[in-house]
């Protein structure tokens, strides 16, 4: 098993190198001379050349990449020219805010979708089942922006229950968390439901009932664990989806996280910052996936000992 984890971790490193190449090339592909961008329009050819040498952009791409990676591994992601601060500082000051939002969103959606999916699976074909499937469909098809704006319209503008934007109190977090978790709740409802339907047809469920265990306990304990395991496998990929979603959601709700930082970086054409965000986000995503995979081998006995 340890061997498996090591192999998986090595594959992750390969992926990360690939991502760093993409992030590196992205900025080099940008139209225009990066040295010129750093200088005022009136700069002379000599100052531009001097800037090129200082930035290292006069060297071959491969050498530039190695220099870049050397810095990255030292923790230096470059400087955001707009904020005039180090990219890593900027990113890590915003990260907790997004993590809080995503974590709360995931928690909310699990609290909602697990019971719903279970009831739908147990009462297959009932009204609540149809409702849950409809919800799952809507959840897949709803745009983050629009859902966010509709929530603002209803709960902030009309009912005046929740603040429409900003941060600070718990109330500020409710709407963005619902939006960020919405797609995941749809997916999880679907998975728990189909998992439940499959599990309840298994022999071992009949066998458990034949031991006199009540229906309720069979559902909530013995079938539950089996039905829930598949959901764990998609939690990792949801981290990526939430990162994508956070860009839009944080912009809608003015939430000061990585997502809104990205949007600002794009408006400001802050390439160095965009590059760093891409690299860091991908790293977090890949590492989360790795952790979930490892965690799964511990949760599902069928994998861990094979």
């Amino acid at each position: 098993m340890l061997q498996k984890i090591i192999r998986r971790a090595l594959a992750t490193v390969v992926v990360l190198i690939g991502v760093s190449i993409i992030a590196f090339l992205l900025v080099r592909l940008a139209p225009g001379d990066p040295a010129k961008l750093m200088l005022p329009d009136t700069a002379t050819e000599e100052t531009i050349q001097a800037m090129r040498e200082k930035m290292g952009t006069d060297k071959p791409l491969f050498i530039q990449y190695l220099t870049y990676m050397k810095n990255v591994l030292k923790g230096d992601l470059g400087t955001s020219y707009h904020y005039n601060r180090s990219c890593s500082q900027l990113i890590f000051s915003r990260l907790p805010s997004t993590a809080k939002l995503a974590g709360f969103g995931m928690l909310l959606s699990l609290c909602f979708s697990i019971p719903l999916g279970m009831i739908a699976g147990i009462k297959k074909g009932s009204f609540i089942d149809t409702l849950s499937m409809f919800f799952a469909m809507i959840g897949q098809s709803m745009s983050h922006v629009w859902l966010g704006l509709m929530l603002i319209l209803i709960f902030a503008v009309n009912l005046k229950w929740l603040p429409s934007m900003g941060t600070g109190t718990f109330k500020h977090m409710i709407m963005p968390a619902i939006v960020i978790g919405f797609q995941f709740s749809a997916l999880a409802t679907r998975m728990v439901r189909s998992g439940m339907i499959d599990v309840l047809q298994e022999d071992y469920i009949t066998a458990t009932r034949a031991k006199g265990i009540s229906k309720f306990k069979v559902y909530t304990k013995y079938a539950f664990k089996n039905a829930l395991l598949p959901v764990v496998t998609v939690v990792g990929s949801q981290v990526g989806a939430m990162m994508s979603g956070s860009m839009v959601i944080e912009t809608v709700f003015s939430w000061p996280g990585i997502g809104s930082l990205t949007t600002q970086a794009i408006y400001n054409r802050d390439y160095q910052l965009i590059q760093s965000i891409l690299l860091i986000s991908a790293t977090i995503f890949v590492v989360c996936n790795l952790l979930v995979d490892i965690l799964y081998t511990f949760i599902d006995p069928r994998i861990s000992f094979n």
């Binding site: 022999d203 071992y204 066998a207 034949a210 031991k211 009540s214 089996n226």
Partner: peptide, 22 residues
Amino acid sequence: SGIRGSKISMVFQNPLTSLNPV
């Protein structure tokens, strides 16, 4: 429920599928 598993119990046909894997 009080009778199943205590007064009447059952051994199932396929031991590969009648034990809960987790």
